[in-house]
Simulated scan of single mutants.
Amino acid sequence: MPYILVQVTDEGVTREQKARIIAGATDLMVDVLGKDPASTFVVIDEVNTDNWGHGGELVTVRRQRERSKG
């Protein structure tokens, strides 16, 4: 019974994109490990960018800096 946790920042991932992620991760378990898709669980956890760090700083700050560079 695979349990797959996908964490992404909460920056506008659409319902359709989430559906594709879930389908793709499930297909990967079927193709690689021969798992039953009916017993494969995929959870998408959307994390606020204030709660995600990279390179020693908040992703929110990094995104703001990237936008200001143009």
Rank of each mutant, 00 (worst) to 15 (best):
I21H: 00
M1P: 13
M1W: 10
L5H: 15
R65C: 06
Y3W: 11
G24A: 06
V6G: 03
A25D: 01
W52Y: 15
N51H: 13
G53W: 04
G55N: 11
D36L: 09
V6Y: 01
N48H: 15
G34V: 10
R20D: 15
N48W: 02
E66S: 11
T40R: 05
D10T: 05
Q17G: 13
V42A: 01
R62V: 13
Q64I: 10
V42W: 02
L5R: 12
D27V: 03
P2S: 09
G34N: 12
G53I: 05
G55Q: 10
G70P: 04
T40P: 02
T26M: 03
V43A: 11
G34Q: 07
V61M: 01
T40G: 08
T40I: 07
E11Y: 04
K69S: 13
D10W: 09
D36K: 14
D45P: 00
T49L: 01
D50S: 12
I22G: 00
R62I: 14
I44R: 00
L5P: 01
L5S: 11
N51P: 06
V47I: 15
M1R: 07
V13E: 02
Q64P: 00
T40H: 04
G70V: 03
K18Y: 08
L58T: 13
V6Q: 02
E16Y: 04
G55Y: 06
V47S: 09
G12A: 11
Y3Q: 10
V61Q: 08
T9I: 13
D27T: 10
P2L: 10
T60D: 12
I21K: 00
D10S: 14
Q7H: 11
V8Q: 02
P37L: 04
T9D: 12
Q64Y: 05
A19T: 15
G70F: 08
S68P: 01
A25Q: 02
S39L: 04
V13A: 08
T14W: 07
Q17Y: 03
E66L: 15
L5F: 14
W52T: 08
I44T: 05
K18H: 07
V32Y: 02
G55D: 06
E57V: 05
G53K: 05
T49A: 10
R20V: 13
R15D: 09
Q7Y: 06
I21T: 12
Q64D: 13
G12W: 11
E66P: 01
I22C: 09
I4L: 14
A23C: 02
V42N: 03
Q7C: 13
M29H: 06
D50Y: 09
G24S: 12
D10Y: 12
D27W: 00
P37S: 06
R15S: 10
D45H: 15
G53L: 08
T14V: 04
P37N: 10
V30L: 03
E57N: 10
N48G: 14
S39H: 06
I22Q: 00
L58F: 12
R62N: 05
T40A: 02
W52M: 07
N51A: 13
W52L: 06
R15K: 15
K18L: 12
V8D: 01
